[in-house]
């Protein structure tokens, strides 16, 4: 199935309209290898400034890793990319996310269609209490897929490297699988509709080392077709899988706990030759 263009429709959801801090950026000014350009000015939860000044370009067919100490806003930034944070009361986003020629925080953009084009895999495996088959077919049915459902489900399960384990029990409940299998099922569910970008929020943190290794290998396969952004609390994981790494830290100078992007570079460069003192200290293990 060809990915459908991001549809727009009037939305009732609160969107930020920040004319004073607008970026000149548009699709035309994005480098060709950037699939999505996330330009966070400020993210608030109520009065709390959670994240500031984080410009994170997500490169096409690469894995971008978000690392940093807990509370640094890396998950918040990731979840802003497909507007998952809109579900949280008091969430306010200032900035832009350029994707496919538009700002997904524009008033005319429906967050539902954003989420249909930017898939997400969560920290805890969260398959639906439906059969394995129906879990994968979920997004296809949602998008009124007209083609061969069986074929597309099999393709997604193969893509998530779980087909051989479940092909004989597609009718079983998705929750009957092991944790690692559930997470790969969730990946299959997310890629069944072939979204352009796949966001992963600490996808291995609830898994054992073997399952973690399987998911990591899978991520490296996935980047051939998809653009992947992953939050990880594990620096070694970033080294193993990420092509680009963004390092976030917490700024407590103004009395709050505001996360921000310290630096971002190709992973090898960032780990071997960090430009910022803070990055150096973090990678060295001086704080975590």
């Amino acid at each position: 199935m060809e990915a459908t263009p991001l549809s727009t429709s009037p939305t009732t959801q609160e969107t930020c309209n920040c004319e004073s801090v607008c970026f000149v950026g548009s699709e035309a000014t994005l480098p060709a290898d950037v699939a999505l350009d996330c330009q966070v000015e400020k993210i608030y939860y109520g009065d709390f400034l959670a994240v500031r000044d984080s410009y994170v370009p997500i490169h096409k067919n690469q894995i971008t890793g978000f690392i940093g100490p807990s509370g640094c806003g890396k998950s918040t930034v990731l979840k802003s990319i497909n507007r998952m944070n809109d579900l949280i009361r008091g969430f306010r986003f200032e900035g832009k996310v350029h994707f496919h020629g538009m700002d997904i925080y524009d008033k005319s953009v429906d967050p539902v269609s954003v989420r249909r084009n930017i898939g997400m895999v969560f920290q805890q495996p969260n398959p639906f209490a439906l059969s394995i088959y129906e879990n994968v077919a979920f997004g296809l049915r949602l998008n009124r897929f007209k083609g061969d459902m069986d074929e597309q489900v099999e393709k997604a399960l193969r893509g998530a490297a779980i087909w051989d384990e479940v092909k004989n029990k597609l009718k079983n409940n998705g929750l009957s699988l092991s944790g690692g299998q559930q997470q790969r099922l969730c990946i299959a569910r997310a890629i069944a509709t072939e979204p352009r970008v796949l966001l992963m929020d600490e996808p291995c943190s609830a898994l054992d080392p073997i399952a973690t290794r399987q998911i990591e290998e899978l991520m490296i396969q996935l980047k051939e077709k998809y653009t992947v952004a992953i939050v990880t609390h594990n620096m070694q994981q970033a080294v193993r899988v990420a092509d680009q790494t963004a390092f976030f830290a917490v700024d407590i100078s103004s009395g709050g706990r505001t996360g921000y992007l310290v630096e971002m570079a190709p992973t090898k460069e960032l780990f071997e030759n960090p430009q910022q003192k803070l990055t150096k200290e973090y990678l060295h293990g001086d704080f975590s």
């Binding site: 579900l87 989420r115 249909r116 969560f122 979920f138 949602l142 998008n143």
Partner: peptide, 27 residues
């Protein structure tokens, strides 16, 4: 129903009614 199930539904791009009908009620 755990919050993560609701997140999964919205993460797939369901509207509120689709989330209720296709995920919450079956769960």
């Amino acid at each position: 129903i755990p919050l993560k199930t609701k997140e999964a539904a919205f993460g797939m791009g369901t509207t509120r009614w689709e989330a209720i009908l296709r995920v919450m009620i079956p769960t």
